[in-house]
C-alpha cells in the first residue's frame, strides 16, 4: 500500500504525516508540488503548514500547483485524499470540498488538544471509528473558521457530510462547530485538527490513563488502509 504525502513550498507537517503513514503500516511516497503524476499511490495526504506563505489566500496557490491538479483529477475518480489544516484549505480552494476557511473568530492562532466527535464513519478516512466516537487530537491554526452559505450548510448537514464537530468549545468560530467534512463519495476528507500528531504513545495528547498517550489520530490512517484493501 503506497500513500503519497505532498510537500509544497512552506508545508510543515509532511514529515509527521509520513511518520503516521509508516506507523499505520503503509509505504510513504513523497510527492513534490511540481509532480504531474502521482506515482501510482493508493491514497494522498495533503499535510498542514503554510504553503506558499499563505499568499493570496491560505491554500489558494497550492490549489493551482501541478500536483494538486493531478490530485483533483484522481480524487474525482475516487482516490482517497485527506487534507489536514492547510491541506483542508487546499481542498476547499480546489473545490474538492465546499465552503471556505477564514481567520479565527478570536483573531488568535490557537494551539491545543481538541476534542472532536466523529459524526460520519462511512468515508475512506473515518471507517475505523465508531459513530459518534469522541476523540482528542491536536489543533493549531490561525485561519480555521469554517464558513459556507446557508444552502451549502443545509446540504452538508442534510447529507451527513459533516465528518467531525468540535466538542467542549469551538476554537475558531466555525459555523455549526464544523471541524471537518467529507465529500459525497466519501473518498475526500478535510479537517483543521491534526491526526498525524496523535499516532504514537509518548508523543500524543494526554489521556486519562497516561500523559501524551493519545493515539486517536492513527485511526484515520488505519481507515484508509481498510478502504483501499476493500476497494
Amino acid at each position: 500500500m503506497k500513500i503519497g504525502v505532498v510537500t509544497f513550498p512552506g508545508t510543515l507537517d509532511d514529515r509527521d504525516a509520513a511518520r503516521a503513514v509508516r506507523i499505520a503500516g503503509a509505504t510513504v511516497v513523497p510527492l513534490w508540488h511540481a509532480d504531474e503524476n502521482l506515482h501510482k499511490v493508493d491514497a494522498v495526504v495533503l499535510p498542514g503548514g503554510f504553503s506558499y506563505g499563505d499568499y493570496l489566500r491560505c491554500g489558494a496557490i497550492a490549489a493551482q500547483a501541478p500536483v494538486t491538479q493531478a490530485i483533483v483529477k484522481a480524487a474525482n475518480g475516487g482516490l482517497p485524499v485527506l487534507g489536514i489544516c492547510n491541506g483542508f484549505q487546499v481542498l476547499v480552494e480546489s473545490h474538492l470540498l465546499p465552503g471556505g476557511l477564514i481567520r479565527n473568530e478570536a483573531q488568535h492562532f490557537i494551539c491545543r488538544d481538541q476534542k472532536l466527535r466523529v459524526e460520519n464513519v462511512d468515508s475512506a478516512w473515518t471507517n475505523a471509528f465508531e459513530l459518534n466516537q469522541e476523540i482528542t487530537i491536536p489543533l493549531k491554526n490561525g485561519e480555521g473558521g469554517y464558513i459556507a452559505d446557508a444552502e451549502t450548510l443545509k446540504r452538508l448537514e442534510g447529507e451527513g457530510l459533516v465528518a467531525f464537530r468540535y466538542l467542549d468549545g469551538n476554537p475558531n468560530g466555525s459555523v455549526n462547530d464544523i471541524a471537518g467534512l467529507r465529500n459525497e463519495r466519501g473518498n475526500v476528507v478535510g479537517l483543521m485538527p491534526h491526526p498525524e500528531h496523535a499516532v504514537e504513545a509518548g508523543f500524543g495528547p494526554d489521556t486519562a490513563s497516561a500523559m501524551r498517550s493519545g493515539i486517536d489520530g492513527l485511526k484515520f490512517f488505519e481507515s484508509v488502509l481498510k478502504a483501499v484493501v476493500n476497494a
Binding site: L56, R57, A60, Q64, E93, G99, G100, I147, A148, D149
Partner: peptide, 9 residues
C-alpha cells in the same frame, strides 16, 4: 476564479 474566493470575498 483565482484572485478572489467567492465564498469569503
Amino acid at each position: 476564479s483565482f484572485l478572489s474566493n467567492g465564498v469569503i470575498e
